[in-house]
Design a protein around this nucleic acid. Structure first.
Lengths: 206, 206
DNA sequence: AATGAAACATGATATTTATCATGTTTTGGT
DNA sequence: ACCAAAACATGATAAATATCATGTTTCATT
């Protein structure tokens, strides 16, 4: 089975696949971080999800019904990804019920996350969504360090803006406020979460 | 297998299950329309999805990992739903790879929809999101009728507001504008889409 | 037909966030 | 160390939407 997997490498600026491309493969992140992006004709972008090592992507419906990718996948820095031909993936799931159950579980979790995000976008303010994002990243990507939790992903204010549905300027202003309030420090290259519980409180403030 | 399914009926004001309840069953809508809702402590609501006959719900991760419902399910009017104990569901999927693949496909589609919604909330204006909702409902729920496409679900301005992340007042104002522009007519009890392509154009306007 | 509740409507105002413009700092590559 | 590009910063203004208040219409029930 495993011989069906091939490995590829990508760097900054590459596309793993583009929105609208036909779905040919099923993917797994091996190393690095991948972002799933949707964009509009006029150049606006929305980042749906950051994928970490071990995450599946493109294991969804488009792999089955022959349609095309609903969004693009881009590396955040250097990444390696594993790929399986969609037919092999399909056969593997048929033969291996446990794997199918794992995929169901994974997709169920992704769906839950997406719904949580929908709720945040619908009901929360910009600063709460940004705080929520930082809490999330600190938990998933942070390494403890003197001076706070350091994020291992390089994340510009623009990246953050795209992830929570605001403009770059608004992200910069809010991050400035967070910095003044001692919640965060640093910029993209070395971003620190200094007060995680403060951010948590903000994220869930009524 | 089918004997594992039990049928229940619900009416206006009932809850099929509430956010936070332990997940015990896997559900299918048999008749009527069900809404999936998330709410905040201070009474705000966000409707994630309207489920129609044939739709599965609660087939997701919470059924597997023993956690609780991430949102509530409420009927829009009278509904009947089919239910299967989660253990039976689990076993059924193990024994029946085709069923598991169907669930993967279904979840993949739900995920795609959720991501589309995320993009809309992040990048589109209120009137575009509302137009988009109406187009969607007309396609899924509409019956052609002299005077336009009539929606078979009773939908108040408040319901619409909760579905696209705006306030009731804003929904009323935008619907008023749509009515003046001849795009829609009527209110909750008899809501007509008079100009589907006009709404489509609005929904995807840059 | 009467009536209370829900739904719809609309105005005035406040708040949030986007937009546009411009300047400074940091970063990566030679 | 230098330089261009990217990232960060900030102000002024505009636009979108929420909030609050109040009134009208429609609906379901008796």
């Amino acid at each position: 089975m495993l011989q069906e997997l091939t490995e590829s490498h990508y760097g900054k600026g590459d596309f793993i696949f583009r929105e609208g491309d036909p779905t040919e493969y099923f993917h797994i992140v091996k190393e690095g971080t991948v972002k799933c992006v949707k964009s509009t004709p006029d150049g606006k972008e929305c980042t749906l999800k950051m994928l970490m090592p071990g995450d599946l992507f493109c294991c969804d419906a488009s792999a089955f019904d022959g349609t095309s990718h609903p969004g693009s996948a881009q590396p955040m820095g250097d990444v390696s990804i594993l790929r399986m031909n969609k037919k092999a993936y399909f056969d593997m799931l048929r033969r291996n019920p446990d794997a199918a159950l794992e995929v169901i579980k994974f997709l169920g979790n992704r769906l839950k996350e997406a719904q949580e995000k929908t709720k945040d976008l619908a009901l929360d303010r910009a600063d709460q969504r940004l705080a929520s994002l930082l809490v999330d990243l600190a938990t998933r990507n942070g390494i403890t360090d003197p001076g706070g939790i350091r994020l291992t992903v390089r994340l510009t204010r623009q990246d953050m803006a795209n992830m929570v549905g605001i403009t770059t300027e608004t992200a910069i202003r809010i991050m400035g406020r967070f910095k003044r309030d001692g919640l965060v420090s640093g910029t993209a290259n070395r971003l620190f979460i200094c007060n995680l519980s403060g951010l948590k409180a903000l994220a869930s403030a009524s």
